[in-house]
Amino acid sequence: MTAPAISHGPRRVLLCYFSKSLFSRTAMCCGILIALMEILALLEQMTPILKRHLGIKGVLTYMVLHLPAMLQTALPLSVLIGGLVLFTQMTVSSEVAILRASGLSPFGFLKKLMPAACILGLFGVLLEDQITPRSELALAAWWNRTNPVPSNGRSFWFHVPAGQASACVDLAARTPKTGSELAHVGYIARAGKEAFNIDLYDRTMDGHLLRTLHAAHAEHGPHGWTLSGIHCVTISFADLDTTANEKDTPDTPWTNPFGPQDMLRLSLDSSPLSSGMILKALHGQLATNQTPGFLRASLFERFLRPLALIVMLLLAMPVIYIPPRTGLKSWLPVWCLGAGLLFIIVQGMFRAMGNAGLLPAPVATVPGLIIFALAAGTALLRNEDK
């Protein structure tokens, strides 16, 4: 004799109960993980903060601005651990047995949890796409602005498209075959509004060097960039002779299409980008130091975040087969946690190959989801047949 089906009213109650339970346990796990990550980050950054005489205000500023990036990192693992805690508690208290006797299948459990997982996934997408890029850029601007020794900053290179930049004098000598300008910046200050030790290399379309320029300082004002302390070397080709003319020039405008925020972003090892910025970077309209493969993989991974969290819940679901008498003595939650960590590692390996250009962006993000979803589904079906 089959158990009676659960009516629509109790089904809505179950949906709310499962959603609230998953939200609360995910929030608890996320809070614990973020607290540990903040402590480890502050252990590393406390000395520089105190050396800059920023005090408690500086510590709090660093924690608040770095919080979105930590929350983004902790969210997938928090969903996995939250799901394990939820399923274990329900199994030990015989709630799972009661619901199974009422006609709720294991995939019925997942169906009740999917709306909450999708909400958490969409929150993760919003966090990664809109909040984290702004907070990390604000953190980098604050960190650069408060640096008493900006000369220890990171140097970087970038290209300026043809026709958009030239700082050398004698612009009439610029040939129609002029290609792009290659720029090297020693370091920046005042959150990207000042740049030091700038070297510009003006080249032809086929890569031949036309002129070089070294500027000691560049400052961004209301009318754009201005170079000072300029020494320019112009190379001229006449028949078979090649000559180089050197001269010092007064302050001159630098038609650099990249503003202070772009310079600040280029000075970072890795700066989070929104989806709109990624699309602009892929079309050459935004300065970035990331490869196209990295950008495409980031875009795919970002919008697959809800599916990744659903896979995390699937990996945690075998816990519902713990015998109630065994309780917390079972090793099954540990194995499920290990499967979730393995999923994160495998996704990271695929992603690294995508970043290096060894795999296309879809192949670097989708197969891991499919493999672990099928593996978790197989484990549930095998346990169901026993």
Rank of each mutant, 00 (worst) to 15 (best):
I310E: 00
I322M: 08
L210R: 07
G259K: 06
S78I: 06
F303Y: 15
F107C: 09
G221Y: 09
G9Q: 10
T234L: 13
P148C: 00
G207C: 03
V346R: 04
P333D: 02
Q164S: 11
V59T: 07
D241N: 10
I310W: 03
K386R: 08
A116S: 11
T146M: 14
G103Y: 10
P106G: 08
N147C: 05
I39K: 04
D385M: 15
P360C: 07
P260E: 07
G327S: 02
Q285A: 15
W335S: 09
G338H: 08
A183G: 00
I81F: 14
L36F: 05
L342I: 10
E95C: 04
P362T: 03
R265S: 14
A141W: 06
R305V: 12
F237I: 13
A69T: 03
A316W: 03
S270N: 14
Q164R: 14
H217G: 04
A69V: 10
S270T: 14
W157C: 11
L99E: 00
L71K: 03
S105L: 00
P257M: 01
F237C: 12
G82R: 09
A74F: 02
H184F: 13
K280I: 03
P115K: 10
T88P: 01
A117P: 08
K329Y: 08
L200W: 00
R100T: 11
I131P: 04
G9V: 15
R100G: 02
M90K: 07
Q72M: 13
S105W: 04
D170M: 11
T326Y: 01
D206W: 05
T26D: 10
V92G: 07
H223V: 09
Q347M: 12
R382W: 01
P292T: 07
S102T: 05
L314R: 02
H66L: 10
I6V: 14
A352V: 06
E44A: 13
L126N: 01
R154K: 12
C118Y: 05
S135P: 08
P4T: 13
S105C: 03
D202V: 11
Y62H: 15
L60I: 12
M63W: 05
V334I: 14
I39E: 01
L286D: 00
M90R: 01
Y201C: 00
A138H: 02
G192Q: 09
W225E: 05
P333S: 01
R145Y: 15
E219H: 10
I310G: 00
F350Y: 15
F158R: 01
S271C: 12
G179K: 09
G293L: 03
C16P: 10
T326E: 08
M46E: 10
S330L: 07
L264F: 09
N245V: 12
I320R: 06
L15A: 14
F156S: 04
S166R: 11
Q130F: 13
F87T: 11
L328I: 11
P250F: 06
A173K: 13
L86R: 02
S21V: 08
F123M: 11
M37T: 11
I198P: 04
R52Q: 06
L381I: 13
V79K: 02
G207N: 00
R52W: 06
G207R: 00
L315R: 04
K386P: 05
N152D: 12
S24L: 15
L209Q: 03
Y201Q: 00
A138C: 02
G186Y: 02
P148V: 00
L60D: 03
I188K: 02
